[in-house]
Amino acid sequence: MDKETITITVIGVDECPLYHVGDVFHLAGKKLSAPYGKSTCLILVQDITGILMKYECMNGSSRYRFDCSGCGGLARLEYRRSELTEPEFFADDIHSIACSMQKSTFFRIFSEEGFRRLTSLLRKKDYPAGKIIVRKGDPGTGLFIIARGKTEVLGKNNIRIATIGEGDLFGEMSLISGDPAAATVCALTPVTALFLDAGSFRSVFHENPAFQIYLTRMLAHRISATNLLRSREIASGISGNLTEISPLELFQTLYANQKTGVLVLKLPGGLGVASFLEGRLIRAKLNEKTDKEALLDILQVREGRYKFNPGLPPEETRTDEIDNLLKLLMEAARHEQTGG
């Protein structure tokens, strides 16, 4: 069955106090959505309503340009109406797709300027049902934001461990850690995704503290949902082998669970120590190296043993955080990718 999409795009302004060239209004059913991050001009809404009523009655041209009635300024707009089949329901314009998803928590974290910057870096990708989008063991290439459709996350023996859909993200952990993809992601239905490549991801990450916080919370949620038992065991003081859980996963787990204590790592190259205060990294040491330099080396190790000891000496509870741990993990990933 064909579906109709209607967009009204601002193509010119003359001292308009609200809108800029390129801003897009979307009509879904009877609901008109204003451009992302913008308030609604009631005068312009009346003008658009009049245009919609006119063309609904006349069944006229699918494209029409008009001026608003004006308040403190003027805006020139283009009305466009299209009949699209289901696989093509979304426009090719990245900004329009992102605007149509403005209720998504991910897009709401950005300022208007940040949103424009982000959409300028995104690319649209389409996948048929059954297509593998990310394969377990492959290097991370970028961040995927699902605009339409559903995907399944497959673990060991291709067992489905999660289903994710519109507004959800995947691919971010490989970019943060530098490790290969931990699971396979396959399209359950036809999928349209917005793709942010690895280099652009790092730029957006460092430019937007809100994005860092968003990923931190998402990481905590995923760990608690998919790895709760192991998280509890580690946080309770259990020891283990680094061939079963990497240093990166250990740091993520302690961070996400806001644990206080000392992580001791017996590594082939020496003894590593990392102190956590309510999940924040306050000290790291490996032989003669300390803090960021020590952390970079610890995260490269894939063999050895670990033990987490809950609690800190009183003097260490007054120590400042080294840096945001998620930022440090990003630096570690870049360090590994560039060879130091």
Rank of each mutant, 00 (worst) to 15 (best):
Y19N: 04
P35C: 08
Y36R: 09
K54L: 11
K54Y: 09
G60T: 10
F66Q: 01
G72V: 12
G73N: 08
R76D: 09
E78T: 06
S82N: 11
S82E: 15
L84R: 15
L84F: 03
P87K: 07
E88Y: 15
D92E: 14
R108C: 01
E112D: 02
E112F: 10
T119Q: 02
S120P: 05
K124M: 08
R135L: 10
G137Q: 06
I159W: 04
I164A: 05
I164R: 11
L169I: 13
E172A: 06
L175E: 07
A187S: 13
L188G: 06
T192M: 05
A193H: 04
F195W: 08
S200L: 04
F201C: 07
S203W: 01
N208F: 09
A210L: 01
L219F: 02
A220Q: 12
G237E: 08
G237H: 02
N241A: 02
S246P: 05
L250F: 03
Y255M: 14
N257Q: 10
V264N: 13
V264G: 06
L265W: 04
K266S: 14
L267G: 01
A274W: 01
S275F: 02
F276Y: 13
R280F: 00
A284I: 05
N287F: 00
N287W: 04
E288F: 05
I298A: 04
L299C: 09
L299W: 02
Q300I: 03
F308S: 11
G311M: 05
E316V: 03
E316F: 02
T317K: 13
R318L: 14
D320H: 01
L326H: 08
